[in-house]
Nucleic acid binder design. Structure first.
Length: 505
RNA sequence: UCCUCGAUAGCUCAGCUGGUUAGAGCACAUGACUGUUAAUCAUGGGGUCCCUGGUUCGAGCCCAGGUCGGGGAGCCA
């Protein structure tokens, strides 16, 4: 079998490809088909004089997303998708498609989500899934190259690891069992057996969240390292994120191009990440401390001005296009083209207005941020917008972090936890830290967090038998994919998203 | 759970202070066009205006309740 991705090696040769008709245009004696085969897209040109009347008529009538095989010559043509086109000499229809619901036009999210099984075929979704694949592969490469052992943590659990979050409850032979919201505690056990481990598995959170950052089912990567402290943990996080992002920049150039991803901020992972203590981050958020001469309050004001400016520009463009149409000298096709542009611009303005309406809230939340609180979504956004590169915030107030976080002995009241915040408003991508080793303190905190001691007996055993300092972190795969691909919504990062209110397809 | 916006053709939307037979574009179908890249031209089919109730001579439009969806807060990766 030959695939589109191999076309450059077969320039000038006659090849056979099997795939689907992604889109076509026809004129009297020619059909131009955007052909896809899973490995890529290319244009196939079907000429009446070459293929004969029967094949030509078949091609002309072929509905979108019908499957077919084509034979033809590979011609280099820089203007085409992928840089090559096929001049078809023969074609055979495999299966004619019914009316395809997804058209090369704007669609609403809900409609597309209902058609997710078909939406995955579109060029943009294709690029996202390919990038996701590279991210997954590079995560495994990173850990395997460093001698980490991959482990699978159980999905049914009897204990609520962090307690506070809503869990999916299931019936487990008459006992309540929860779908895992983290494999970390099991990872700690395995780290005591293997030294360096990582989990890579599904995670479930029954949060009734309807935001672009949440899923009910997502994939998490959780390494755990014996004899690591917070500093080593942070070094590993930084190396890890740098490795994965660099590898995508390196291997998914075409995909990022399809996604029209501006890679400026991604390139910044090659520079050292910002590291700051929680207390300093709070000062930055509250506008008490500036970054490169600018406070958060000034940054938000600048941001607001920029958005308003952008909005004016878009409105001007709409007006200009409307006047063009009203002028009456345009051809019908040109009117459609302009009308489509106007619709698109209107949607962009809606987005801008929403962002604009958020800014006063952010400003308010930033000014009034209470020391000791956990960061909200807007606080993370404000902080990362100050830097434009990944920021690691460490030494958090103990109360806002999980019971297993180790207290910093030199910084009482603070836990040796770290969050990595991605730039461009993507927020928390990694959360981790050094684990509490003092068994008495652990027991006390389990009680304080109102967790059932009996479910944690096995975990406490880890402190009784060869207790060692250790650390780890958790990475939300979908948030990483969203950031790297520059996606508006986390729903697009996973083949079949499970979110509040959606179980199909 | 709370705040906020929305639901009109297969899709994306318009529909004025309530007033005859609810519109456009795309998609689809038919025909014309020899190189297109969401930009050619013509014709055609296509509607339970989310549901229930109310106000009114009259409701796509107003009111109440509900359902579903978008965005956000909370919570989080």
């Amino acid at each position: 079998m030959l695939y589109i991705k191999d076309l450059p090696k077969h320039e000038g040769q006659e090849v056979e490809l099997k795939g689907w008709n992604a889109q076509k245009r026809d004129s009297k004696g020619l059909v131009f088909m955007t052909f896809r085969d899973g490995t890529g897209f290319c244009q196939a040109v079907i000429d009446l004089n070459v293929v004969g009347e029967t094949s030509f008529e078949a091609a002309k009538r072929l509905p979108q997303e019908s499957s077919l095989s084509i034979k033809g010559k590979v011609i280099k043509d820089e203007r085409q998708i992928g840089g090559y086109e096929i001049q078809v000499s023969a074609l055979q229809v495999i299966a004619e498609a019914e009316d395809y619901p997804i058209t090369p036009k704007e669609h609403g999210v809900d409609f597309l989500m209902d058609k997710r099984h078909l939406w995955l075929r579109s060029r943009r979704q294709w690029a996202i899934m390919r990038t996701r694949n590279e991210i997954i592969y590079s995560i495994h490469r990173f850990f395997q190259e460093r001698g980490f052992v991959q482990m699978d943590a159980p999905i049914f659990t009897g204990n609520a690891c962090e307690g506070t979050t809503t869990l999916f409850e299931t019936d487990y032979y008459g006992e309540p069992a929860y779908l895992s919201q983290s494999g970390q505690l099991y990872g700690e056990a395995m780290a005591m057996a293997q030294g360096l481990i990582y989990t890579f598995g599904p995670t479930f959170r029954a949060e009734k969240s309807k935001t672009r950052r949440h899923l009910s089912e997502f994939w998490m990567i959780e390494p755990e390292m014996a004899f690591y402290d917070l500093k080593m943990d942070m070094d590993l996080i930084e190396d890890f994120v740098r490795y994965v992002v660099s590898s995508v920049l390196d291997k998914c150039k075409e995909e990022l191009k399809v996604l029209e991803r501006d890679t400026t901020y991604l390139e910044k992972v090659r520079e050292p990440f910002i590291r700051m203590k929680y207390e300093d981050a709070v000062s930055v958020i509250r506008g008490e401390k500036d970054v490169n001469g600018r406070t958060s309050l000034q940054m938000l004001a600048d941001e607001e001005a920029a958005l308003k400016d952008e909005k004016l520009k878009l409105e001007a463009e709409i007006k200009e296009r409307e006047e063009k149409i009203a002028g009456g000298t345009l051809k019908k096709g040109e009117i459609n083209f302009n009308q489509n542009k106007i619709d698109k611009l209107k949607n962009e303005i809606k987005d801008l207005e929403e962002k604009l309406s958020n800014i006063p809230q952010w400003l308010n939340s930033a000014k009034n941020f209470k020391r000791g609180d956990d960061f909200g979504g807007s606080d993370e956004t404000v902080l990362t917008k100050m830097f434009g590169q990944p920021v690691m915030v460490y030494n958090w107030p103990q109360e806002v972090k999980a019971f297993y976080m180790k207290e910093d002995e030199t910084d009482k009241g603070y836990a040796k936890g770290v969050d990595l915040l991605a730039p461009e408003g993507y927020g928390e991508v990694v959360g981790g830290g050094e684990r509490e080793t003092d068994i008495e303190r652990l027991k006390r905190k389990i009680v304080e967090h109102q967790l059932p001691m009996s479910a944690f007996e096995w975990y406490l055993d880890l402190r009784k038998f060869g207790n060692v300092p250790h650390a780890g972190f958790g990475l939300g795969l979908e948030r990483l994919v969203a950031w790297i691909c520059g996606l508006q919504h986390i729903r697009e990062t996973i083949p079949f998203p499970r979110s509040y209110g959606r179980l199909l397809p």
